[in-house]
Nucleic acid binder design. Sequence first.
DNA 1: TGCCAGGCCCTCTTTAGGGCCTT
Length: 204
Amino acid sequence: MGNYTVAVIDFETTGLSPHCGDRTIEVGAVLVANNRIVDRFQSLMNPKMKLSSFIEDYTGITNGMLTKAPDITDVMKKLKKFISTHYLVAHNASFDSKFLDAEFSRIQFKRINEFACSMLTARRVYPDAPNHKLETLVRYKQLKTDGVHHRALADAEMTAHLWMRMIEDIKSAYSRSVVSFGLMQQLGKTQKKKVHEFLAAAMP
DNA sequence: TGCCAGGCCCTCTTTAGGGCCTT
């Protein structure tokens, strides 16, 4: 055990909902194996629509930067290869999973990877954090960061460091049996099974 | 044309509502 790979993923998008026409504009993803980042993937994408000034300000990604960016279809094909069949992790995974599924669906791909959510896990593991935004948790746990926020690869890397730290903190605080029968019973229904699988894989 | 999210979790709960988090 311990020889497992997780793909941590983050999207920047034109807005909050693919069902309202929003598209992805940048993806960042890292592979985590043996408690370290072993590979990285990043690309801008051209959504063929104009970014709002809010999104330009929020991400630092401008309309001008996207005019020469590759088509979303081409990036999704590469992303699919990158994440392969690995487990996926994202901060507030419901957001990234719905965009990944929506973009995959447009090119007749179907996601087979399971998602776990670092935000829902952090709420359980770090209940005393000021809040459970990625930025706050990175500061709270004094995790490695280059100071960039709201860009896909930077956020994916921070999420990866947060995920690795949570695994380590859980491992050091609880025995395997307690993890199985104690902490896991405190988790919400949806995350319990997924986090347990991840932890089981991470245990030596 | 103009509208514009939604899943999870908590609780003053389950015949529901509201906050958090993502862009």
